[in-house]
Design a protein around this nucleic acid. Structure first.
Lengths: 146, 146
DNA sequence: CTTTAACCCGACTGAACCACTATGCTTGTT
DNA sequence: AACAAGCATAGTGGTTCAGTCGGGTTAAAG
């Protein structure tokens, strides 16, 4: 299960990325439009800013805006930023590898072999799907079910 | 990340499934062999027993034994039993569906579309890989790296 | 028939994490 | 100078994790 916070982060980023001309959007407006608790969103956006995904402008007509292009921001990157490693086992994380502690010889570990396949499969999807991909989908495609 | 408890459960099941003739194995022996805290393992095995995966015999020469054949027990089943739904979003779980609360129209939800692909991919692996599969692998294959 | 060795079961605990909320501060525009 | 926007830290109530504790109950051996 991905966290609520990650869901909020992704939705906020999609809202910003959908802005024409990349103009800034107020926290409050994002919060209202996407139904996210205002103050919680504030600290999520701070995280995204510290990571360099978005920028902010203060004062009147300020707000948050996309700093990187939507085509370059993957779901995987956002999830790692908020939730930490995607890998189902610490010993499978490429970004935050940790030994499992219990299993002695790692490349004989039977569990690891299975979960490595899971990790690869999810990485294949999450690290190749960008914000732009899902925005496009929204514009061009009809609902799957009527 | 899968829980420590699930890892223990899978390792314990593999230990039992590897037993020749399906003879019972003491909790203490499993605990020692697989490096699992004794009392914690005890309650894990109870869960597995209540779910009908294993059986127990009391008294002298008792212990736990496999109740179902290793070919019929998938990783997915065990993980769901211990950790709950595999799905990354509650609205994607086939076993324990719950609406997302925030997103209004579910089949227009952009996040859902992406995570549905993740959910399918992991199910494809975890619901088709059985205990027998990884036991066989252990017998026949050499280590991947020397 | 009593002891012993096994499983059975509920309660508890300390640490961490989640999803927020509160409060104040800084900074840029008007 | 006033106001409005973001910046930042601390706190909070609830839940989960990863066990531990202390006692049951049951079956076989002596």
């Amino acid at each position: 299960m991905i966290s609520q916070k990650s869901k909020y982060a992704l939705r906020a980023l999609l809202a910003l990325a959908a802005r024409p001309g990349g103009e800034p959007m107020l926290i409050s407006d994002i919060a209202e439009q996407e139904v996210i608790p205002r103050k919680f969103l504030e600290q999520i956006l701070l995280d995204l800013k510290r990571a360099g995904l978005v920028a902010s402008r203060r004062g009147k007509a300020g707000g948050y805006l996309m700093l990187r292009r939507a085509e370059t921001v993957t779901f995987g990157e956002v999830l790692r930023l908020i939730d930490g490693p995607l890998a189902p086992l610490p010993c499978l994380s490429k970004m935050a590898y940790r030994r499992c502690g219990d299993c002695a010889n790692e490349n004989a570990c039977k569990l690891r072999k299975v979960f490595a396949r899971v990790a690869d499969a999810t990485r294949d999807i999450l690290d190749t799907t960008t914000l732009a991909d899902v925005l496009q989908a929204g514009v061009t495609s009809l609902p799957v079910e009527i």
